[in-house]
Design a protein around this nucleic acid. Structure first.
Lengths: 106, 106
DNA sequence: TGATATACATCGTATCACGAAGTATTCTGT
DNA sequence: ACAGAATACTTCGTGATACGATGTATATCA
């Protein structure tokens, strides 16, 4: 997929990956893989950004003797997903504008 | 609309604005306005980029005593729109992933 | 024992939208 | 005739950001 297009979907995709139950970095990448692939460096950058802006919360917990960082969506994060749903109407209009068939002019 | 999301649609939107008939900067902005607003600096940056990468062609022509730059889509530009159409299937899958209703787990 | 998977982190780079500011002409209202 | 809006294009600086490269550390498995 076009990189620029991906950019607009990444944040909301990560939020969607944790919206039903908390998750952690490595698992998020695997869960998202069928929909969108991303490198680890990209994901951890995004997770940090989403945390800083209050769209998700982090807590560390032990797993197999190691600390693992679990991410949970916040109310603001859920609101972000709702905003995406709202944006979708505009996006569909753009899609139709871009892919409309040429008019027969004469 | 979310800025990042906009980024992914801008190039293809500009191409769509000239795909039926050649156009020029100021007109492109007005034609796109119902779908997406953009500043002049943004548009002219995009036009230059699309020209450099061969997705559109430019020629200057006189209009009311002034030179105006007309942009025309190339075959590569049309192909770019086709690619967007292809990307759409993935985008729809992502949309469903993001907006799917929470499963009832217990 | 060596490779692979898990798990997270940091740094540098290239791309890019946009505001601000500039230049220059034409049109419109008073 | 004059001011201001509209038309038309350009350049510069900035902040945001995806990603490759690289590093650290442990667990699993052949």
């Amino acid at each position: 997929m076009d990189i620029q297009l991906k950019r607009g979907l990444l944040d909301v995709c990560v939020l969607a990956a944790i919206k039903n139950e908390e998750s952690y970095g490595y698992k998020i990448i695997k869960d998202m893989k069928p929909y969108m692939e991303m490198s680890e460096s990209t994901l951890y950058t995004i997770l940090k950004r989403l945390e800083t802006s209050g769209l998700l919360e982090v807590h560390s917990a032990e797993h197999n003797g190691r600390l693992r960082k679990y991410y949970r969506i916040t109310d603001a994060g859920s609101k972000r997903i709702d905003e995406f749903r709202d944006d979708w109407k505009e996006i569909m209009a753009i899609y139709r504008f871009v892919t409309r068939e040429d008019q027969i002019n004469d």
